[in-house]
Amino acid sequence: MTMIIRDFRPSDAQAASASYSAGRPHLLMTPEAVLHLVASATPEQHYRLLVGELDGEVVGSGRVGVHAFSSTKGQGFANLSVNPEARGKGVATAMLAAAERHLAEHGVSVIRAWVDDVPDSVAFAERHGYVRGRSAHFAHLDLTAGLRPVPELPAGVELRTAADYLDDPRPLYVVDVEGTQDEPGDVDLSDLGYEEWLEEVWERPDLDRELTTVVVVDGRAAAFSAVHSDGGTRYWSAFTTTSAQFRGRGLAKLAKTDSLHRAVARGCTDAYTSNDATNAPMLAINDWLGYRRCASEWAYTKEI
Rank of each mutant, 00 (worst) to 15 (best):
L147I: 05
H67W: 08
H102M: 04
A139N: 09
G88I: 10
H106V: 01
S81G: 14
T144V: 07
G107M: 09
A94L: 07
K89M: 06
A113Q: 09
H140P: 11
G90F: 14
H102D: 02
A139I: 08
G90Y: 12
V110I: 13
V82D: 03
G90D: 14
H128D: 01
A113M: 10
G129W: 10
A92Q: 03
S121Y: 04
S70M: 10
L103D: 01
A104H: 12
M95R: 06
A125N: 06
T93C: 00
S109E: 13
R132V: 00
D116N: 04
T93M: 05
L80Q: 11
R101P: 00
A125I: 00
V118I: 12
H140L: 06
A136H: 14
A139K: 10
D120C: 07
N79Y: 13
V110L: 15
A92L: 01
V82E: 05
R87L: 06
G129F: 12
N83E: 13
A145R: 13
T93S: 11
A123K: 08
I111S: 01
R127D: 14
A98M: 11
T93W: 05
S70F: 00
L103P: 00
A68S: 15
E85H: 15
L143R: 06
H106A: 03
A145F: 12
R87D: 04
L147W: 12
R87V: 12
W114P: 01
F124T: 05
K73R: 15
P84L: 03
H128F: 08
H67I: 00
V66L: 00
G90V: 04
V115K: 00
H106S: 03
L96C: 11
P119G: 01
A86M: 08
H102P: 05
T93R: 07
K73M: 09
V122H: 07
G76W: 02
L96Q: 14
L143A: 06
E105K: 05
R101K: 10
K89T: 12
A92W: 00
G133H: 15
A125L: 03
F138T: 12
G76K: 02
G90I: 01
G133E: 04
R134H: 06
T72I: 03
K89Y: 09
G146Q: 14
S135H: 15
D117M: 08
R127A: 15
N79M: 04
A99C: 13
A68L: 12
V118S: 12
G129R: 12
A68F: 12
L96N: 11
V91Q: 05
E85P: 10
F138P: 15
G90R: 06
L80N: 11
L96T: 03
S135F: 05
F138D: 10
R112P: 01
D142G: 11
G129C: 09
H67A: 02
G74S: 12
